[in-house]
């Protein structure tokens, strides 16, 4: 619970949270955020998921499609193919100076294939040359003999709120676990069952002592609390969080977090501007 005097301290600090990376390679990132609150964490989560501009195919013009997959399904599949792009190079449609779409806000692709065989995302041919697909082995359609596909596609920048194909990441946060174990109050059997029941292997039994080994792995499921009468208390720290993010586009999770902070700042400025 937040007491009034704590509130003052917080305001002095200016809601500056401390971040510490605990795990992360490739598309995944896990960090601890201290001195913050659930509202701030949720704002960050929602922004990383829904407000980061990501490039995806938007319009598809089908010239020929005799494959078993329908035109609209092919278009929908192409839209979901993740693209590698330079985020500083492109503008959103509404922020671009042009009206009809130009090379600063649109990228054109062609896709051509003949059966028999599988048509892969790697065969998407970018006309401007600086955008490519992230994974080139995504099957788009399968063609039999005498079947062919020929189409044109246009990609544009947008946000996850608009369409989930533009979603940048899957993010989540949880309270940092506080696990209190009173070794004197617990019987040997209780200690043993606590260690066994924990699905995340948080506890370790050292002779007669129940130790907390992997505190960060705890998901606050409280299976261990239900196992005993008293002696184990599990709560969440309301000012310390574990934030997990997995990028599902071509951008790095580190970039997504910093961009999210930028977007949030812009949004906050807009509110102040409207009120003044």
């Amino acid at each position: 619970m937040t007491r009034p005097e704590d509130q003052e301290v917080k305001e002095e600090r200016g809601y500056k949270m401390k971040l510490e990376k605990i795990d992360g390679k490739g598309k995944k990132l896990k960090f601890i955020a201290e001195d913050t609150n659930p509202a701030m964490m949720n704002a960050l989560r929602r922004t990383t998921m829904n407000y980061i501009p990501v490039l995806a195919i938007e319009n598809v013009g089908i010239i020929e499609n005799s494959s078993p997959v329908f035109d609209e399904i092919i278009a929908q599949r192409l839209g979901q193919v993740p693209l590698v792009f330079d985020p500083d190079k492109f503008n959103m449609h509404e922020d671009c100076e042009c009206e009809e779409g130009c090379s600063n806000c649109e990228v054109k692709f062609t896709l051509k294939g003949e059966g028999p065989g599988i048509l892969y995302s790697g065969e998407l041919n970018c006309k401007s040359g600086d955008v490519e697909v992230l994974y080139d082995r995504i099957p788009i359609t399968e063609m039999d003999e005498n079947q062919e596909v020929d189409l044109e596609a246009t990609a544009c920048l947008s946000i996850g709120k608009d369409h989930s194909k533009h979603q940048a990441s899957v993010s989540s946060y949880q309270y940092y676990p506080i696990i209190d174990v009173d070794n004197d109050e617990l019987t040997v059997e209780e200690k043993k069952s606590c260690q066994e029941i924990c699905p995340r292997n948080v506890f370790e039994l050292d002779g007669d002592k129940l130790n907390i080994e992997n505190e960060e792995r705890c998901t606050l499921c409280k299976e261990c609390v239900e196992e005993v009468d008293s002696g184990v208390v599990v709560t969440g720290d309301e000012e310390k969080f574990i934030f997990k993010i997995e990028s599902i586009c071509s951008l790095d999770p580190e970039y997504i977090i910093s961009k999210a902070a930028e977007v949030l700042e812009e949004k906050a400025d807009k509110v102040v501007e409207k009120l003044s």
């Binding site: 193919v81 993740p82 994974y135 082995r137 099957p139 399968e142 989930s164 599902i248």
Partner: peptide, 18 residues
């Protein structure tokens, strides 16, 4: 045909299917 992305979370999975 295998979906390009997971229907629930949105992670690209199509390239892993084969």
């Amino acid at each position: 045909i295998i979906p390009v992305r997971c229907m629930s979370c949105g992670k690209p999975v199509g390239h892993l299917w084969e």
